[in-house]
């Protein structure tokens, strides 16, 4: 946990909200999330599709379309970045903050070689010659352990396997030594065996380079593998945060408990997997009370009337619920 008194956070987010206003609806995609990340720390944002995790990451990079209204503060080593002019923000993207994506095939330009795409970023940020940038690209490809890197540099994305492409994407993201890496479900599209390789690689690179990582996933197993801390997101809010061990071993929020008991890893052999009944609320029509109340098995009358309190069971943990005791898991 970050000790605010004597460390400057690699990234600090204060009360970030994102709204999409269209003629038909006012969609509240992110409703006030806050966190601070120390250098070298990994925070996993865990949640279902549509919970606002990817939108949050894009908001941190200033990558949302113009229809989005963003409020709150994002501090990078103490400097507010959301209010920066677009040109200044572009300098940070791919430099101090960079991002890797769920589907590297879709995130890489199909008509440029991998080498060119890495070198281009280096040239953009460091103003070095193309030759020097290609040399860096080669170093990065070796760094992410791509075999015969020199040859692979000349490959186009479609000539590589999924795992190789994700390594190349990571090489690209890390080429300018970012202090914060935003990872948007980088292992979701990969085979399980490749997933673990990529996770191990990310952890190792993170230790070597000392960067902070915000890792977004819906996969509890992946979260357990990579995280220092976990924030469980539901309907655009963090409903529970804490150390990975704490959150994944002794969930306090009924939604976290539901997520854990609906994954294969959390359940014993021979038991029928539980599902969370119902589906996430529409972000255009959030209820006045707890957004999870309609699906919650522990619901009380007070839950549907007003927002649940924010409880702090112990320092470094938070749960947005009427109670903060660990729930009994069906394990």
């Amino acid at each position: 946990m970050l000790d605010a008194a004597n460390t400057v956070a690699a990234m600090e987010v204060r009360d970030l909200t994102v709204r999409f206003r269209t003629d038909e609806a006012d969609v509240a995609a992110v409703n006030g999330i806050s966190f601070a990340l120390a250098p070298g720390e990994t925070l996993t944002i865990l949640g279902e599709s549509g919970s606002g995790k990817s939108v949050s990451l894009k908001a941190l990079m200033g990558l949302l379309p113009r229809q989005a209204t963003i409020t709150g503060k994002v501090l990078l080593k103490g400097t507010e970045i959301l209010s920066l002019p677009p040109s200044q923000l572009a300098k940070l993207r791919g430099g101090a903050v960079s991002m890797i994506f769920q589907e590297p095939m879709a995130a890489l330009d199909p008509v440029y070689t991998i080498g060119e795409q890495i070198a281009e970023t280096v040239v953009q940020h460091e103003g070095v010659s193309h030759r020097a940038a290609m040399k860096r690209a080669l170093e990065m490809m070796e760094h992410v352990r791509i075999p015969s890197a020199a040859r692979r540099l000349k490959n186009y994305p479609h000539e590589m396997s999924g795992g190789m492409r994700q390594r190349a994407m990571i090489a690209l993201a890390l080429a300018c030594s970012p202090s914060v890496l935003l990872a948007d479900e980088p292992t979701t599209a990969l085979d399980v065996t490749v997933q673990i390789q990529i996770l191990l690689l990310l952890r190792q690179l993170q230790e070597e380079m000392g960067m902070a990582v915000v890792f977004v996933t819906h996969d509890v197993g992946v979260a357990a593998e990579i995280s220092d801390r976990v924030a469980v997101m539901y309907a655009g809010r963090f409903v529970e945060t804490g150390s990975a061990r704490d959150v994944l071993r002794s969930a306090r929020h009924p939604y976290t408990a539901g997520l854990l008991s609906s994954t294969v890893q959390g359940v014993m052999r021979g038991k029928v997997l539980e599902t969370i009944p119902g589906s996430p609320p529409s972000l255009a029509h959030l209820p006045p009370g707890c957004a999870f109340a309609p699906r919650c098995s522990h619901v009380a009358p007070v839950c549907v009337q007003s927002q649940p309190p924010v409880l702090v069971p112990h320092p470094g943990a938070m749960v947005r619920c009427i109670q903060d005791k660990p729930l009994h898991l069906p394990v």
């Binding site: 572009a90 960079s98 994506f101 890489l108 330009d109």
Partner: peptide, 9 residues
């Protein structure tokens, strides 16, 4: 979007 994310203008 990824091109913007790597800081290209």
């Amino acid at each position: 979007g990824a091109l913007s994310a790597k800081g290209l203008t």
